[in-house]
Amino acid sequence: MGKGRLIVLTGPSGVGKGTLLRSLLARHPELYFSVSVTTRSPRPGEIDGKNYYFVSRNQFEEMVTAGELLEWAEFAGNYYGTPKRRVKEHIQQGQWVILEIELEGARQIRKNFPEALRIFIMPPSVSELENRIRGRGQDSEVAIARRLSHAQAEIAAASEFDIQIVNDDLKDALQAIEDAIFTTANC
């Protein structure tokens, strides 16, 4: 992997990005996962610095003002962003860096890093996506409705990405991501 590369993984909330990413990183420890910064509260089991860097809204806004974020967006009432310095350092060292980000952030990456490989994870259907979101048991009915509405807008933008992968079967979706990353790199 001599040349550094940026890989962006995007898709609607509940589509399984996190599960796919954990499996991908377990199989390919050479990939560097960039931990995002967020203003949302940690979910049960999440660890600061591993899953996210959890910060206050004021801290996040200071990071934006100081130009410390590669991309950032507001989603479901919280800010999310990618710390710029570490991503650039790892790419300069020849590593492949993978980001798991929302659509708005992915659009910013397209402008700032047009050479990034951008992968969009699709649900098999909107009804299956709703089942997955409800199955997490973490959201109110209002939040579920908001996530589903947002998901439909995100799905409509899937064609903006280099590759679209349907997460109908975890094993098949993971293989498709590996093929996209490692086959595209050798072209």
Rank of each mutant, 00 (worst) to 15 (best):
K3G: 11
K3H: 15
G4E: 05
R5Y: 04
L6W: 04
I7P: 00
G14Y: 04
G18T: 11
T19Q: 00
L21W: 01
L21M: 15
L24T: 05
A26D: 13
A26K: 14
R27N: 12
P29Q: 05
Y32I: 14
Y32R: 10
V35H: 01
S36W: 07
S36K: 15
V37M: 11
V37G: 00
T39G: 08
S41D: 11
S41A: 14
R43Q: 12
R43D: 11
P44T: 10
P44M: 06
G45K: 11
G45P: 07
I47Y: 05
D48F: 08
K50N: 08
Y53W: 13
S56C: 10
N58L: 13
Q59L: 11
Q59R: 13
F60H: 02
E62L: 12
E62K: 14
V64G: 09
V64C: 09
V64A: 09
V64L: 08
G67M: 06
E68Q: 15
L70W: 09
E71N: 14
E71G: 10
E74S: 13
F75K: 12
F75G: 12
A76V: 04
A76P: 02
G77M: 04
N78D: 15
T82H: 03
K84D: 10
K84F: 07
V87Y: 02
V87A: 12
V87L: 09
H90M: 15
H90C: 12
I91L: 13
G94A: 06
Q95W: 11
Q95C: 10
L99M: 03
L99K: 01
L99H: 01
E100C: 15
I101F: 03
I101Q: 01
E102M: 13
L103S: 11
A106M: 06
I109Q: 05
R110E: 15
N112F: 06
F113T: 09
L117Q: 09
L117W: 02
R118G: 02
I119K: 00
F120L: 03
I121E: 01
V126P: 06
V126Q: 10
E130Q: 12
R132L: 02
R134T: 04
G135L: 01
R136Y: 05
Q138F: 12
D139K: 06
E141N: 14
A143L: 13
A143N: 11
